[in-house]
Design a protein around this nucleic acid. Structure first.
Lengths: 385, 385
DNA sequence: ATGAAAGCGCTAACAC
DNA sequence: GTGTTAGCGCTTTCAT
């Protein structure tokens, strides 16, 4: 391939000089037009645009980045797009990033990845990004924050505290402990003596956070804190946990750390002859799209993924574009507890079990309890949906 | 900000010249070391690496791209990471891309997006990519393939025919018609007189493909082709469709175009008093992670997302790196039909309905029927999982 | 309102 | 094996 000529085929890729020549202006003027700078006469602008159109001109982004020192792209480190939480967060981020005019570079850290978050961040830095989003990082096998390199672009961490040392760091999301709280209170209000917990993998901050919220809520209400069963977010692990829990007849309510595990759990309980919600109530976490349609429709906590992504990115972009300004303030979005048919009062010890039957048509009558994070207790219970 | 000095703080970002100076070699030698070129003595290589380490040197990717004409990145156009199919494909692509040494740029086209796939491709071209992956594109409102610009990088389309005109195009995946076929044959073998179809949104190629497969399979077996109900992939739309279908007592088997709709459908049937699978059999599509754990466990078609992504990308990278060679041959991966508990023989007209009960512990005994695309009919039915 | 000149930090080609 | 010289196609600075 000869330098500076055709890239493929027989037509050369046009450069700004070519456009300038055709429009009869200087190269710099072409640059001005494409950067929407002022001081370009309407006539010149039109001529330049026409010439560019005719040649099929596209600015070379590498040259732009090299000359300006800005790549106009944001890197995202995400873990397992297969999971609803991370996937939703990624979607939210993508949506917002586009509106800001930045491009998105994505690196996926799989669990069990040797390089981990540190490696992913490093690779983004190599690629050249103006800012970084780290979505739901998990604890690394190696020591945390041992990155031996400097991160001098702003970093936004979603749903966890900072996993790496970065001078210009921001966080958004998280606070699942408070969300867990509303789930537990709902179950206690129904009359359950305590609530068991099917936890997520404890390397995930989100999982630990939910567990802490569960424990704190029980303790605050003076209830016993049963031992914890740990899953791996999958329905399969929920199913396995369910087989264990089904044997313990003291279990009347379970708070699962996500909906998938809740569904597996319910399956196992059902197969063991323990009816949900008559014998055991189950609350999930996430409100995945099918949650309202499984049997029984799932009571669950809905996370405000979109709001978190949007709010966090607004702050990240602000930090990128105003390196010396103070970061924008945080504003945690409210959380919803969606009450459907998988929760009910505990079985009364005197009444015998009814004939098993299809749970009634309850999901259309789902209730939502919204609570903002700044309130201590939720005063409202507004029905919607 | 002064040119060529500190980017932030008081320490300048080191360049290859700085490394060269410190190591006592020429700048070009540093470049050689970092590009793993040959003809660098072990001693020099070590000194350069040490110097780089000490300074915290990182190659500037923009400069690299500008000088070499290659960006070493691949762009992905994906539609709605919220859906299991596109999300799985994206995950697969990410996994493979990393191993190839390319970076990933992602653009998400939401449904109802004005710019659509064409706009997304254009934005990737602006960003500068060496190749493009278009994952499950849908039909655009505007005329197809009307892109007024040239796409002179290789393009890989996943799960659909080419939505844009590109000289160097490849495709992978797709062929859902054949997959639909195995689902239909399973139901017919159980004794159903025909199979209804709950289709996906017909703007999606994948949805049309499944519909065609369904229609073709019924026709091939001389069965009646009932009218189609169309959903939007969501469980909610499956539920709405289910309320309609529940009223038609001729419906004994339904093939849903994805698992989410199947779950919504089952919910609606159940609420209407039609038992699954005793009264109505339901087959889904995708084998989402919870499919084995909903009630009843879902019989479904599993798509080989990972294999498709891997195979497609291998060919894309080959096309990028060997512009003038012939494209690598295609090799369609096999498809699995996972038989669980949502399918059964049709109700015999003489036997009255049994008392509704919990479906038995069947999902652990799931059967898998695998068929490769080159065979006309599946000869094997090997149990696994 | 427009242009000329000087880099941005690297890789490519060729010399030694 | 290693160094020298020219760009890559833009943006920046400064002149007009």
């Amino acid at each position: 391939m000869t330098r500076g000529t055709a890239r493929s085929g027989n037509t050369a890729v046009p450069r700004s000089v070519d456009v300038a020549r055709l429009a009869g202006v200087s190269q710099k003027t072409v640059s001005r037009v494409f950067n929407d700078e002022q001081y370009v006469s309407a006539d010149v602008r039109r001529r330049v645009l026409e010439a560019a159109e005719e040649l099929g001109y596209r600015r070379n982004n590498a040259a732009r980045a090299l000359a300006s020192g800005r790549t106009r792209s944001i890197g995202v480190v995400t873990l397992g797009t297969a999971l609803y939480g991370p996937a939703s967060l990624l979607m939210g981020v993508e949506r917002v990033v586009r509106d800001t005019g930045y491009a998105l570079r994505v690196v996926n850290t799989m669990e069990g990845d040797t390089a981990g978050v540190t490696g992913a961040v490093s690779s983004l830095l190599d690629q050249g990004v103006d800012g970084i989003v780290i979505s739901e990082p998990i604890d690394e096998a190696s020591a945390e924050g041992d990155a031996s390199f400097r991160i001098d672009v702003p970093v936004l961490v979603l749903g966890a505290p900072l996993p790496v040392t970065a001078p210009r760091a921001l966080t958004a999301g998280g606070g699942a402990d408070l969300m867990a709280n509303s789930a537990i209170e709902h179950l206690l209000e129904l009359g359950h003596l305590t609530v068991h917990h099917l936890a997520g993998p404890q390397r995930w901050y989100a999982a630990r956070d939910r567990l802490e919220g569960w424990r704190a809520a029980l303790t605050a209400h003076g209830k016993a804190v049963p031992s914890v069963v740990e899953g791996d977010w999958s329905a399969a692990s929920g199913y396995r946990a369910g087989r264990e829990l089904a044997e313990d007849f003291d279990v009347t309510a379970v708070f699962a750390a996500n909906d998938d595990m809740a569904i597996g759990l319910i399956r196992a309980l059902t197969e063991a002859g323990r009816r949900v919600p008559e014998d055991v109530s189950v609350v999930g976490f996430d409100d995945i799209p099918v949650a309202a349609y499984v049997t029984p429709p799932l009571t669950t906590v809905r996370q405000p993924f979109d709001a978190v992504a949007q709010e966090g990115l607004k702050r990240l972009v602000h930090a990128i574009e105003n390196p010396h300004a103070d970061p924008l303030p945080t504003s945690d979005p409210p959380i919803d507890l969606i009450i459907r048919a998988s929760t009910a009062p505990p079985p009364s010890r005197t009444t015998p079990a009814n004939v098993a039957g299809i749970p009634p048509l309850v999901h259309s009558g789902a209730r939502t309890i919204r609570r903002s994070r700044t309130e201590a207790r939720p005063p409202t219970a507004d029905p919607h949906r």
